[in-house]
Design a binder for these strands. Sequence first.
DNA 1: TCAAAAATCAGTATAAATACGGATGCTATT
DNA 2: AATAGCATCCGTATTTATACTGATTTTTGA
Lengths: 210, 210
Amino acid sequence: MKPIKLIIADDHELFRNGLNELLKKYDDVHVVALVEDGNQLFQELEKHKDIAIVLLDITMPNMDGFQVLNKLKNSDNNIKPVVISMHDEGNYIASCAKNGAYSYLLKNTDQDELIKTIRIVNDGKKYFQPQIAEKMINYMSEQSVSENILSNKEKEVLGLISKGLTTKEIAKQLFVSSRTIETHRANIIKKLEVKNTAELIKKATEINLI
Amino acid sequence: MKPIKLIIADDHELFRNGLNELLKKYDDVHVVALVEDGNQLFQELEKHKDIAIVLLDITMPNMDGFQVLNKLKNSDNNIKPVVISMHDEGNYIASCAKNGAYSYLLKNTDQDELIKTIRIVNDGKKYFQPQIAEKMINYMSEQSVSENILSNKEKEVLGLISKGLTTKEIAKQLFVSSRTIETHRANIIKKLEVKNTAELIKKATEINLI
DNA sequence: TCAAAAATCAGTATAAATACGGATGCTATT
DNA sequence: AATAGCATCCGTATTTATACTGATTTTTGA
């Protein structure tokens, strides 16, 4: 039986090397390369055409995990990305799933789950742990709505509000009447279901609108 | 020569075990125990009285790294804590240094730096990499001002403002006059050097005040 | 214990935000 | 062609927030 060839992509050297050491215990897994960002990953993927799995961190310099997922999705290959992240937030998980991740593991996962996931994914099946899937579903049903709800102009106004500009100043800067900005502000507040500007800014930062 | 006895405290099992594997290469280092939070750490420290170094993560459940540093500082021992964190923010670094950390490493440090640090710290010397020390200094001169500048009452009011409550509502809730809350709000705005409530909430979230 | 900081309250005035109401031209989708 | 959403604008009125100056009591820390 051929070993499962995989590459580890993580900008934390200690984690990367540590994971490598851990995986040496398993005969059916062969770590082909260790890289610290997406660019290096694709260089390695050029060299090795038989990679089955990429263990992928999200937060990396240069080309991060999201970009890697996107590029993998839009190219012809059968590499199965497994995200290993420390963020258990719904938006991270959902974004990864949407962009083709075969699994999403937290860095506090135990070794058994890791090797189990690698083996399942290697068979071409996606595998998300129940608690991860739940976070994703919760996110889908709540947050994603408000992310796409604002028009471009409204997002622009929101950004200026958060910089401390008043309605009048924003109107001047955007060459429109104050009334227009007031309407925008009112619409934004209504859409995000908040009471006033203070709560608006808080909610907007929470859902990464600004 | 006796090996350097150390304990690894990190809630991420993969990282913890990986680090353990890495350190097995070095004959002068002996990993006595792996723990996932501060409580377990102190249980182990009870059992082993000759621990020289603790490799300590900041973000852990139950008892986190900061609490561990504090407890170690206030007890009689010569355990030298080395923080290994993924946050390269000045406030984290400064807090650790202030609470007795002998070093502060990032998780993307290479193995050579890690073992070098362990050996230096084992000799009783503190060691902070130049870029870490620089971050800390920058923080000292800038951020710490705004972090510690708010009084408890002001922080409480700030929290309520961010929930969308008006001055009047806050006053009612805290059983004081609206004037008081207005003064608080004005003082908070002045202290954080922002123009209005919108910018205030943004800055407050940026520096993790709310 | 003495000084500094924090928490409390006040007057007056202006600026800004919010809540109602309503309107028009434009664009994209059905 | 019609509907819906978006961006733009307006009036009136009320509520909130901000600016300025000033004060007292309590708490805290050196």
